[in-house]
């Protein structure tokens, strides 16, 4: 059911773009107003969410570790698995963000015949996740050719590398194939396993369908007969970026579908699970050093409790205690 709702949501978005930009000809709305509005929502949303997270205290010092902690100098400790200094934390974070190190340890549980509970390693999620994220990043950077003039050398270099195999014309990019395979795997992974299907929500399927629709509309404009007029596309982008927006001649409905889906994605981004992009930097289980034996972590929640120490108690009752011949710390 959640799958169908998500699929319907993606189809509805495509229909909105077809009817809005195509049939009704609201190109100004879909080409200028919506991109600006969604970009504003994206920037505002990200900052808002991050600040909101930063305002919540981390009551406990909770780095999750899986290596020897730093203790005596003659015991070798694991710098990346149990970081002690800020530099080591940075190294651990970098591996987490760039290579999803913790997901590499992902395990699966299966109930086999017997009944027998079997635990095993599960690397496919890590592999598909890594393949998807890196492809997405490379595709995003490649798209800079539509957004900047002159096109920087690294965009051209990335394009050449991505089109290394020179198959088809226009050359099929490796990342275009990889991202499609990865997204389909991530989708079927949720559908195939009953346990995963049980706890998958519409919010899990919707981004997958949205990303798939974006990818497919992109393929249609590059590889098939529905080719876009790229000069017009870049003219639109450059107009938006220099705050002199115009709608150039030559933009097709398929381009507006692509643009509208991307607009929806970036507006949806800060208010959905996609915010793990910023969240990964703010996970206290990852970004804290495991140094609680060397440095005191004070709970920011700690209420300033009025205490009456033993010293003060003794000062208050010294005479009485002396008279009762009770032992005193200070005479």
């Amino acid at each position: 059911m959640t799958v169908i709702i998500s699929l319907l949501a993606a189809v509805t978005l495509i229909l909105i773009a077809i009817i809005g930009a195509g049939t009704l000809g609201l190109q100004y709305l879909f080409g200028i107003v919506i991109p600006y509005a969604t970009l504003a929502a994206f920037l505002f949303g990200i900052v808002y969410r991050v600040v909101k997270w930063a305002r919540s205290p981390v009551p406990f010092h909770i780095p999750t570790t899986c290596g020897q902690q730093k203790s005596h100098p003659w015991i070798k400790y694991s710098k990346l698995e149990s970081p002690f200094t800020a530099l080591e934390v940075t190294g651990r974070m970098a591996l987490e963000i760039l290579f999803f190190r913790s997901l590499f340890r992902n395990t699966k549980v299966d109930l086999k015949k017997g009944p027998k509970l079997v635990y095993g390693s599960e690397k496919y999620l890590w592999l598909a996740g890594l393949a998807f994220h890196w492809s997405f990043l490379i595709i995003l950077v490649r798209h800079l050719r539509f957004f900047v003039e002159p096109v920087p050398f690294f965009v051209a270099a990335l394009q050449t590398l991505d089109g290394f195999f020179q198959i088809w014309l226009p050359i099929i990019y490796i990342t275009d194939v990889v991202i499609l395979v990865a997204l389909l795997f991530l989708l079927f992974r949720r559908l195939y396993d009953p346990k995963l299907r049980y706890f998958s929500l519409a919010a899990d399927y919707f981004p997958l369908f949205l990303l798939l629709s974006i990818a497919v509309t992109g393929y249609l404009m590059r590889y098939t007969g529905a080719k876009a007029d790229l000069i017009a596309v870049k003219e639109l982008a450059m107009g938006l970026l220099s705050f002199r927006p115009t709608i150039p001649v030559g933009l097709d409905t398929i381009f507006f579908i692509h643009l509208f889906l991307v607009s929806v994605l970036i507006a949806y981004f800060p208010f959905s699970k996609l915010m793990h992009m910023a969240g990964v930097f703010m996970s206290p289980t990852r970004n804290l050093a495991n140094n609680s034996r060397a440095k005191r972590h004070v709970n920011p929640w700690d209420y300033d409790v009025k205490v009456h120490t033993y010293e003060e108690y003794e000062d208050e009752f010294r005479e009485v205690m002396k008279a009762a011949k009770m032992p005193l710390e200070k005479e």
Binding site: F147, V148, E149, P152, M238, L241, S242, R244
Partner: peptide, 14 residues
């Protein structure tokens, strides 16, 4: 990046 890069390169209207 695209906003300030284009502003700096001065080729936004090219």
């Amino acid at each position: 990046f695209p906003f300030w890069f284009n502003a700096a390169s001065g080729r936004a209207t090219y």
